[in-house]
Design a protein around this nucleic acid. Structure first.
Length: 463
RNA sequence: CGGGAUGUAGCGCAGCUUGGUUAGCGCGCCACGUUCGGGACGUGGAGGCCCCGGGUUCAAAUCCCGGCAUCCCGACCA
C-alpha cells in the first residue's frame, strides 16, 4: 500500500486543507502575501457557483453593473462606522503616473460608497425605485492572516446593492436574497446546509442596521460564514444623499441594502465535504461530473464511445486515456479532485460488456453494463448530490448541542442557547475563548423578525 | 504590531556547528525499455545568482553586519 495521499483530517485539519487545495490543483499562493492564484480546477468550481448565483440574482430582478476599483479616500469617510470598520485593512494608492496623488485612492474593500454616490444621481423619483443592482468584482482587504479561499487579500465576489422606497421593502429584499438566492445555491448546488439567522450588534457589518448570515459547519467542527445580506437602513442614503420625491411630492431618503458571496465559499465546499482521500464535489458544482478512465490502450476506443454517450446524455465528462501513467496514479488523482463518478473501462470489462463504476461519495465499486450505463448516470448524479447534502446535514445535527449557559460552551461543533443567557457582556467573554455568536434564530430555528425577543444564539468557533 | 522559525533545482529537504575537490538527496520533469485493474521499475539525462547587498578571508551556501521575503502562534475580517 502506498502512503496516505493527504494528512488525515483527524491528525491536522488545517494541514489537510492546505494539502488538498494544492494537490487537487485548485489554488496556490500569489507573489504578494495573501494573494491567490486560482488554478483551473478551483476556478472551474467558482464558475459553476457564479453561474448558479448569477441566474438567481437575475431571476429576482437584478441587473449587473460594473464600477471602478479605485475610490477617492474621502468617499469612504462619508459613513462613519463604515470607515472605522474598514480603514485598518485598506490598500491605498498614493502614487500614479510617476507622481504623488493629491488625494490618495483606495482599492475598494467593498463598493457601498461608489455605488451609493451613483445611486444618488440615478434615484430622483419614486418611479426609479426599487433600484436593483449587482456587480461581479474583485476587492482588496489587507488581512492579517490569509488562507487560500477562506481569507485572501484580494478575493472575487458578487456584491448586490439596492435602494427602496420603504424600510419594509428593503428588509424584504435583504431576506429574499438570503433565502431565494443564497440559501438555494448553497443548499441545492453546493449541498451545504446552512443556518440562516441574524448577526449580533458586535458581529454585524460596519454601517448596517441589520446583518443576516448563512452559517455552515465544517468537518472540523468550526463554522464558516457562507454569505451575508445587510439591511443598511438609511445610513448610506444619508451619507450619499440618495433621496427621491414620493407620490405626494415629499422628499424622502431611500432605504438601501447590500449583500455578497465570495470565493470563500469554495473553501467552505472543500471543508464541508472533503475527506481523507480529497475533495468530494457535489455534481452540480463539479467541473467534470464523470471521468471515464481507460485502463489500457486496448480500452481507449470503448472508453471514448462511453464518454460520447455520456456527453449526449448531458453529463460533463472527461476521458482519461493517459495510459502511459499507471492506473493507480490516475485513480488517486481523480479522487483528490473529487470527481463524483468514475467509470473504469479495461480489456476485461470490454470482453464482458461492462464497466466498473465508482462513486466518490461512498466506498466500493460495482459493475454496470457498458452500453446502457450512460442513460442512468444523470439520475445517479442527482442521487449523489442529495446524498452529500444528507451527509452534511447529519454531521451538523450530530455536532449541535443545546446548552443553558455560556460556560457550557466548550469543544468543537455548534452550541444553541438562549440569547438572553449571553447578552453583550458574555459575548465578549466567549470571544476571549475563541467563540463567537454565529447567528441569532427565532424559537423555531428560522430567521428572526425585528421584534422577536425570544432568540436562540448559535455559538461556535469560526474561520 | 508582538512571540517563534525559515529562505539551497518546479516541490520537499540535507549540507552550515568546525570555511577548502565539480553543492547533494527524495519527488517531479525528459528519453528509451520493461510494466500497467489502486500512487510501477531500470538505465540515461536536463535543471542552481545556495534570498539580496556589504564585509572578513588566499578561499564563503557555510563566519560577521544590514536589508528583504515567507511561514507558524495571537489581535482584525467575505
Amino acid at each position: 500500500m502506498a502512503p496516505p495521499v493527504l494528512t488525515p483530517q483527524s491528525v491536522d485539519f488545517p494541514r489537510w486543507y492546505q494539502e488538498v487545495v494544492a494537490k487537487a490543483g485548485m489554488a496556490e499562493n500569489g507573489l504578494v502575501r495573501g494573494t491567490m492564484i486560482i488554478r483551473p480546477w478551483g476556478f472551474g468550481i467558482w464558475e459553476r457557483i457564479q453561474a448558479a448565483l448569477d441566474a438567481r440574482i437575475k431571476a429576482t430582478g437584478h441587473d449587473n453593473v460594473y464600477f471602478p476599483m479605485l475610490i477617492p479616500r474621502s468617499f469612504l469617510e462619508r459613513e462613519a462606522e463604515h470607515v472605522e470598520g474598514f480603514s485598518p485593512e485598506l490598500a491605498v494608492v498614493t502614487h500614479a503616473g510617476g507622481e504623488e496623488l493629491a488625494e490618495p485612492l483606495i482599492v475598494r474593500p467593498t463598493s457601498e460608497t461608489v455605488i451609493g454616490d451613483a445611486m444618488a444621481r440615478w434615484v430622483q423619483g419614486h418611479r426609479d425605485l426599487p433600484l436593483l443592482l449587482n456587480q461581479w468584482a474583485n476587492v482588496v482587504r489587507w488581512e492579517l492572516r490569509p488562507r487560500l479561499f477562506l481569507r485572501t487579500t484580494e478575493f472575487l465576489w458578487q456584491e448586490g446593492h439596492t435602494a427602496h422606497a420603504a424600510w419594509d421593502e428593503a428588509e424584504e429584499e435583504t431576506l429574499r436574497i438570503l433565502v431565494e438566492v443564497y440559501d438555494e445555491v448553497i443548499r441545492d448546488v453546493l449541498a451545504v446546509p446552512a443556518l440562516l439567522g441574524r448577526k449580533t450588534e458586535a458581529e454585524k457589518f460596519p454601517g448596517a442596521e441589520a446583518t443576516y448570515t448563512l452559517e455552515a459547519l465544517m468537518r472540523d467542527g468550526k463554522a464558516l460564514q457562507m454569505g451575508t445580506s445587510h439591511n443598511l437602513g438609511q445610513n448610506f442614503s444619508k451619507a450619499f444623499d440618495i433621496a427621491f420625491s414620493d407620490e405626494s411630492g415629499e422628499r424622502q431618503l431611500a432605504w438601501t441594502t447590500s449583500w455578497g458571496v465570495s470565493t470563500r465559499v469554495v473553501g467552505g465546499l472543500v471543508m464541508a465535504h472533503g475527506d481523507d482521500r480529497g475533495l468530494r464535489l457535489p455534481p452540480r458544482v463539479a467541473p467534470e461530473q464523470v471521468v471515464v478512465l481507460a485502463v489500457k490502450d486496448e480500452a481507449i476506443e470503448a472508453a471514448a464511445r462511453l464518454a460520447d454517450d455520456l456527453r449526449r446524455a448531458g453529463v460533463r465528462v472527461r476521458l482519461d486515456d493517459r495510459t502511459s501513467q499507471s492506473f493507480g496514479r490516475r485513480a488517486v488523482n481523480w479522487e483528490l479532485k473529487g470527481v463524483p463518478v468514475r467509470l473504469e473501462v479495461g480489456p476485461r470489462d470490454i470482453a464482458s460488456g461492462r464497466a466498473a463504476l465508482v462513486r466518490r461519495d461512498v466506498e466500493g465499486k460495482r459493475n454496470v453494463a457498458l452500453d446502457t450505463v450512460a442513460a442512468t448516470v444523470p439520475a445517479l448524479l442527482d442521487e449523489i448530490q442529495d446524498a452529500l447534502l444528507a451527509d452534511a446535514l447529519r454531521r451538523r445535527e450530530e455536532a449541535t448541542a443545546d446548552v443553558a449557559d455560556p460556560d457550557d460552551v466548550d469543544g468543537p461543533g455548534l452550541f444553541r442557547l438562549p440569547w438572553k443567557a449571553i447578552g453583550e457582556a458574555a459575548e465578549r467573554g466567549l470571544a476571549e475563548r475563541g467563540y463567537t455568536v454565529r447567528c441569532l434564530l427565532d424559537a423555531d430555528g428560522a430567521v428572526p423578525s425585528r421584534r422577536e425577543t425570544d432568540l436562540v444564539a448559535v455559538v461556535a468557533k469560526a474561520y
